[in-house]
């Protein structure tokens, strides 16, 4: 088994003493797409911020066999791309092109090499035409694509997305699924959108009160009404979760 990401006994408390993560254990195989489900305030985003060392708790985070420590933060940040919930937080440069170039430029790329990287990243999300546009003039869907491109430009091994479907219209959501399915990457997708998780991710984990409380194939997790209810989750009106049975997903 080739692990893209391994988290062992990760604990973290905020400066005010509130415990956000209480011993998270997690192992994700290379190439799988995993949904991270759970109620508001469960610690999902806090977990994501630990995966590339923006927050540092106690415990071990290993990315592609490399254990995160003070000396390899840069390499870890190259390996783990994070797409933040509010695209406005991620797009801070004057134009989309410069924003996509920001990451690889920090890695030391310049000139033609940098341009090629930017073009490739924008191409992967079908957004080449956005390069010259200022971010505040983009639609929600365009902002989301641009934000994903900024992370892809680092050529990561793992892409972590925080609530990627929030604020998207149904068609934008559909296009996002297609874009993400087309990426040859390990994906970790934090979401409240259970049908989205079902469509995109082979596996799911449920995080509640700072620990992983369930893990398994997405269809199995979503078919377990009692489990969902226990953690403030439910399939949207009109969906029959328990009918999913052992339907294979995420293909």
């Amino acid at each position: 088994m080739n692990l893209a990401l391994e988290v062992r006994d990760l604990e973290f408390s905020y400066p005010d003493g509130r415990q956000a993560l209480g011993g998270v254990d997690l192992a994700i195989e290379t190439g799988t797409r995993v949904a991270v489900l759970g109620p508001n305030g469960a610690g999902k985003t806090t977990l994501a911020l630990h995966l590339n060392g923006i927050l540092r708790g106690s415990g071990v985070v290993t990315v592609g066999g490399l254990e995160l420590n003070d000396d390899n933060l840069n390499e870890i940040r190259r390996r783990v791309g994070i797409v933040f919930q509010d695209a406005n937080d991620q797009l801070f440069m004057p134009t989309v092109g410069e924003d996509v170039a920001f990451g690889p430029a920090n890695l030391g790329l310049r000139g033609a090499e940098l341009e090629a990287r930017v073009e490739a990243a924008l191409g992967e999300v079908d957004a080449t035409e956005l390069a010259q546009r200022p971010p505040h003039h983009l639609s929600g869907g365009e902002k989301r694509s641009a934000a994903i491109a900024t992370a892809l430009a680092m050529e990561p091994q793992i892409l972590v997305l925080d609530e990627p479907t929030s604020g998207l219209d149904p068609l934008g959501r559909r296009e996002l699924v297609q874009t993400l399915q087309g990426l040859d990457l390990t994906l970790l997708v934090i979401t409240h959108d259970l049908p989205f998780a079902l469509e995109l991710c082979q596996r799911s984990i449920i995080v509640d009160r700072g620990t992983v409380v369930a893990e398994g194939p997405t269809a199995e997790i979503l078919a377990n009404d009692a489990l969902l209810q226990q953690h403030r989750l439910e399939m949207p009106f009109g969906f029959n979760g328990s009918a999913l049975g052992d339907r294979s997903t995420g293909s």
């Binding site: 911020l49 590339n52 923006i54 840069n74 940040r77 190259r78 791309g81 994070i82 933040f84 937080d89 991620q90 801070f92 920001f102 990451g103 920090n106 890695l107 900024t150 992370a151 680092m154």
Partner: peptide, 8 residues
């Protein structure tokens, strides 16, 4: 955070 995540 978003900047640091991209190697700032």
């Amino acid at each position: 955070d978003a900047m640091v995540a991209r190697g700032y």
